[in-house]
């Protein structure tokens, strides 16, 4: 089928319009359809972006929540104190305003992250080298404390003492870091 408008390109878009019960059909190519303004759902950048989809996903919550109006309104009014973005705005655009939004909307975020990252909510990757310094040390201390307990249970006190010294050393580093900040 050839486009009705330019009569050159093949018609790839087929429209059915019903106005006052009167049905009209027409067939256009993508180019002419855009020129005539018949295509409202497409725009320059391909239109349907991840953010639209995400916003859809987030808004999906609302009909369920509406059965409990008080709770729903509470969420609507939630606001990040740093950038002033409201939770409602976030669900519209699918993007946060600042890093504090992650704390301001922490309760709402948990199920969203689960859905987006197939059940995961906790980071398991890289820790920044410089500002992450104390996190590295704290994770190491946690690990050693576990080890210490194991040795105590097994009554291997010499090894336990070694681990205890390691923990002390790391803790002294941690407090030195604290003063440095």
């Amino acid at each position: 089928m050839i486009c009705q408008e330019c009569k050159q390109r093949p018609a790839t878009m087929h429209f059915t319009k019903i106005i006052n019960g009167e049905k009209t059909e027409f067939h256009l190519c993508e180019h002419c359809a855009q020129e005539r303004g018949e295509v409202f759902m497409f725009h320059e950048n391909g239109g349907f972006s991840i953010h639209n989809l995400l916003a859809g996903l987030l808004n999906f919550d609302s009909p369920i929540k509406e059965t409990k109006p008080s709770a729903f309104q509470g969420i609507e009014l939630l606001q990040c104190e740093r950038c002033n973005m409201t939770y409602h705005q976030f669900t519209k655009i699918g993007r946060f305003g600042c890093s504090n939004c992650y704390y301001a909307f922490v309760k709402q975020l948990q199920p969203i992250l689960k859905r987006l990252h197939s059940g995961n909510t906790t980071h398991a990757g890289k820790i920044p080298r410089r500002i992450g310094g104390t996190i590295h040390i704290r994770k190491q201390i946690e690990h050693l404390k576990q080890k210490l307990q194991d040795f105590i249970v097994k009554e291997e006190f010499e090894k336990a003492a070694e681990v205890r010294d390691q923990i002390r050393f790391l803790e002294s580093q941690l407090s030195a870091h604290g003063e440095g900040d």
Partner: peptide, 18 residues
């Protein structure tokens, strides 16, 4: 912007973590 639990904080939650 980094959080111990959430990782690198990104403007879209589809990128958060790594």
């Amino acid at each position: 912007a980094f959080d111990e639990k959430r990782g690198y904080l990104t403007s879209c939650p589809t990128n958060v973590g790594t």
